[in-house]
C-alpha cells in the first residue's frame, strides 16, 4: 500500500476516502468525465489512478444523463458506483434521474432492496464562472424523498462522510464545496473512520446565537464568529454536514441554549433549505421557538441567477460582513 500524508486538503481527503473504499470493497467503482485522463478530480490521492484507472475508475464521454442513469442500474445490479457530475448546476441536466428515480423510484415500485450509489459534484462561487458552474442546488434535491444529501465543510468531515456515503445503501448526493477544495489543510487520520450521515457537528461553541450552516458557509460563519467575539457576541456555529437526513435535534438543542437562531446558506433564499429548517424546528420544538429572544432569521443568496462576474457574485452570495451584520441585528 502507498503511504500518504495525513495532512490533507479538502479534495484530497475526498479522493483518499474513495481510494480507501475501493481497496476495501471491490464493488466500489467510479465513472465520469476525465477522471483518468486529467487525474485531478480526486485531488492527489497518491497512486489512485495508477491503481484503479481504466479498470474501476472509468472515463466517459460528456453524457451526464447516462452517467447518472448508469449509476442507478449498476447499483441495482450489485455494484456500488460513484458517478461524477462536475457541478451541482449540471445536475439539472439529469434531473429526472436524480429526482424521480433515485429519489422516488423504489417507493413507487415498493422495492425494499438497496440502491447504493453516490453522485459526486461540487458547488460554490468564487471564480465568476456563472450559474451552471457555481449555483448551489441542494434545495432542489431536498424536495425528493429518497435522496440523502451530504455537504461537508472540512477535510476531516469530507473523508468520513464520503466513506459513509459509499457504504450507505441509499442513493447519496455528495455536494463538495469547490471554493474549499484547496483551502485549509487538516490532520486527517490514516485509519478508517466514518461520520454517520445525519449527525451535525458543533464547529464553535457559543452562548448568544446559533448559526446553522453547512459546506462553504461554515468558514464564513466561523470567521464572522471570531470577529463578533471581539464585541462580546459569542456565536455557536452548528455544521449540519448532511441536510438529508437532518439532525434537527442538534439545532433545537443549540437554539434552546443560545435563544437565537440564524440559518445561513450559499444557495438562493426562495425555497431554500433555511425555510425547511425553520419550519421543522417549529414543528418539533414549538416551545423552544416560543422562547426565542428574537425571531428566527435566514441569510441566503439573492434570488438571482449567478452572473459570470466575480465581483457581482460576492454581492449576491452572503459573505463574512453579511453574517456579522445580521447577527448584530439579532443580538
Amino acid at each position: 500500500m502507498v503511504e500518504y500524508a495525513q495532512t490533507l486538503n479538502y479534495v484530497s481527503a475526498i479522493g483518499t476516502a474513495i481510494m480507501e473504499e475501493m481497496r476495501r470493497d471491490e464493488r466500489v467503482v467510479a465513472w465520469g468525465q476525465d477522471l483518468v485522463s486529467m487525474r485531478g478530480t480526486f485531488g492527489d490521492a497518491p497512486g489512485m489512478i495508477d491503481e484503479f484507472g481504466g479498470d474501476r475508475i472509468i472515463d466517459t464521454p460528456i453524457i451526464e444523463q447516462a452517467i447518472a442513469q448508469m449509476a442507478v442500474g449498476a447499483a441495482l445490479a450489485g455494484s456500488r458506483p460513484i458517478a461524477y457530475i462536475a457541478t451541482a448546476g449540471f445536475l439539472s441536466v439529469c434531473f429526472d434521474t436524480l429526482f424521480m428515480k433515485m429519489g422516488a423510484m423504489r417507493q413507487e415500485f415498493s422495492y425494499k432492496g438497496p440502491m447504493p450509489l453516490v453522485i459526486f459534484c461540487r458547488a460554490g462561487v468564487g471564480g465568476g464562472f456563472g450559474a451552471d458552474h457555481c449555483t448551489s442546488t441542494e434545495a432542489l434535491f431536498m424536495h425528493t424523498p429518497g435522496l440523502k444529501i451530504v455537504m461537508p465543510s472540512t477535510p476531516y468531515d469530507a473523508k468520513g462522510l464520503m466513506k459513509a456515503a459509499i457504504r450507505d445503501d441509499d442513493p447519496v448526493l455528495f455536494i463538495a464545496s469547490g471554493p474549499l477544495y484547496f483551502g485549509t489543510k487538516q490532520f486527517v487520520p490514516v485509519e478508517d473512520y466514518i461520520i454517520p450521515l445525519g449527525q451535525a457537528d458543533i464547529k464553535r461553541e457559543g452562548t448568544d446565537i446559533t448559526i446553522v450552516a453547512w459546506s462553504g458557509m461554515i468558514p464564513k460563519a466561523l470567521n464572522a464568529a471570531e470577529i463578533l467575539s471581539k464585541d462580546n457576541i459569542n456565536a455557536e456555529v452548528v455544521d449540519l454536514r448532511t441536510i438529508v437526513p437532518m439532525d434537527i435535534e442538534a439545532v433545537v438543542k443549540s437554539a434552546k441554549k443560545t435563544g437565537r437562531l440564524l440559518i445561513a446558506h450559499d444557495a438562493m433564499k426562495r425555497g431554500g433549505a433555511a425555510a425547511e429548517i425553520a419550519m421543522k424546528i417549529n414543528e418539533v420544538a414549538p416551545d423552544v421557538v416560543a422562547n426565542l429572544k428574537t425571531p428566527i432569521r435566514r441569510l441566503a443568496a439573492k434570488n438571482l441567477g449567478l452572473p459570470r462576474n466575480r465581483e457581482l457574485e460576492a454581492e449576491l452570495v452572503p459573505q463574512i460582513p453579511d453574517v456579522i451584520q445580521i447577527v448584530k441585528e439579532m443580538v
Binding site: 433564499k269 426562495r270 439573492k302 434570488n303 438571482l304 441567477g305 452572473p307 462576474n309 465581483e311 457581482l312 454581492e315 449576491l316
Partner: peptide, 16 residues
Amino acid sequence: PRPSYEDHVKTVIGDL
C-alpha cells in the same frame, strides 16, 4: 466599467 449590482438586480422576478 463592470456591470453594477444595481443593474444586475433589475432582472429579478419577485423579491430578492
